[in-house]
Amino acid sequence: MNGVAPPELDAKAQTLHQRILGDIERRIVSGEWPPGYRIPFETELTEIYGCSRMTVNKVLTQLAAAGLIERRRKAGSFVSQPRSEAAVLAIHGIEAEVTALGLPYRFELMHRRQRRPTAAERLTFALEGSGPLLALTCRHFAGDGPFCLEERLIDLEAVPQAGKADFTREPPGVWLLGHVPWTVAEHHIKAAAARGEEAALLKLEPGSACLVVERRTWRGDQFVTAVRFTYPGDRHQLVARFSPS
């Protein structure tokens, strides 16, 4: 015996490896096993699938390398918190960030009202008059967990059709990208502590670290929208790729 497994046994092991890998990936991506869920121990998985511990260990190692699980010594393996990457200079919908993680996406419109701008807003956004603004608050989800909080203002003098848009069916960011061409955008990125209501909506402890992205867009000289995205700080990162000028 030279220690090399016969081809048919090796193929069988590979098939079982893919089956276990596919089963666990499906449970994670579907949300059946949410972030933080403890995956059965290696010994439990060997009993469930009737395989060697080495096969299970290889599967878990592959899942950890893909970022789907975290392996903690003596504690076991746990489904990872979703981590997203967003380009600093890109403008795209939150749904694209979530689906890139392989997680189901949904959103809910929590607040909507029209109001006049404050003096500070007229100065900040260079508003010439005191025409109405549409104030929106949305919560975006990745799987079963809150992914991002969106707080947005839309200038109804620049975008009057937004006053009748149904933002319960389509997120405001996606709607704006499809209906209003913009020419200039500005990003502000900072760290902030989660505030009371904000922390509750994101299911965080008050004072937890968050990543905040504030964006303003204009069409020519006319202000269109300002939005504040708040992400749990340990689940999001911003990426920029650039070349020397």
Rank of each mutant, 00 (worst) to 15 (best):
residue 60 L to R: 04
residue 61 T to I: 03
residue 61 T to P: 00
residue 62 Q to D: 14
residue 62 Q to T: 09
residue 66 A to F: 00
residue 68 L to R: 11
residue 68 L to E: 00
residue 69 I to C: 01
residue 70 E to M: 05
residue 73 R to F: 12
residue 74 K to S: 10
residue 79 V to Q: 06
residue 79 V to N: 08
residue 79 V to I: 12
residue 81 Q to K: 11
residue 81 Q to Y: 05
residue 86 A to F: 10
residue 87 A to L: 13
residue 88 V to P: 01
residue 89 L to S: 02
residue 90 A to K: 15
residue 94 I to E: 07
residue 94 I to S: 08
residue 99 T to E: 10
residue 100 A to V: 02
residue 101 L to M: 12
residue 101 L to H: 01
residue 102 G to W: 06
residue 102 G to H: 06
residue 103 L to V: 01
residue 103 L to A: 12
residue 103 L to G: 00
residue 104 P to R: 14
residue 104 P to F: 07
residue 104 P to I: 09
residue 105 Y to M: 08
residue 107 F to L: 07
residue 108 E to F: 06
residue 109 L to R: 08
residue 110 M to L: 13
residue 112 R to V: 03
residue 117 P to K: 14
residue 118 T to K: 06
residue 120 A to R: 15
residue 121 E to L: 09
residue 122 R to E: 13
residue 122 R to V: 13
residue 123 L to Y: 04
residue 124 T to S: 11
residue 126 A to T: 12
residue 126 A to E: 14
residue 127 L to Y: 08
residue 127 L to E: 14
residue 130 S to T: 10
residue 130 S to C: 04
residue 132 P to V: 03
residue 133 L to T: 04
residue 133 L to Y: 05
residue 134 L to T: 03
residue 134 L to G: 09
residue 136 L to P: 02
residue 137 T to C: 07
residue 138 C to S: 12
residue 139 R to W: 06
residue 140 H to P: 04
residue 141 F to S: 08
residue 143 G to Y: 01
residue 143 G to Q: 01
residue 145 G to L: 09
residue 146 P to L: 15
residue 148 C to K: 03
residue 150 E to M: 02
residue 151 E to W: 00
residue 154 I to P: 01
residue 155 D to Q: 03
residue 155 D to M: 02
residue 156 L to D: 01
residue 157 E to W: 04
residue 157 E to I: 05
residue 157 E to N: 11
residue 159 V to H: 05
residue 161 Q to N: 07
residue 163 G to E: 13
residue 164 K to S: 11
residue 165 A to P: 03
residue 170 E to N: 03
residue 172 P to M: 08
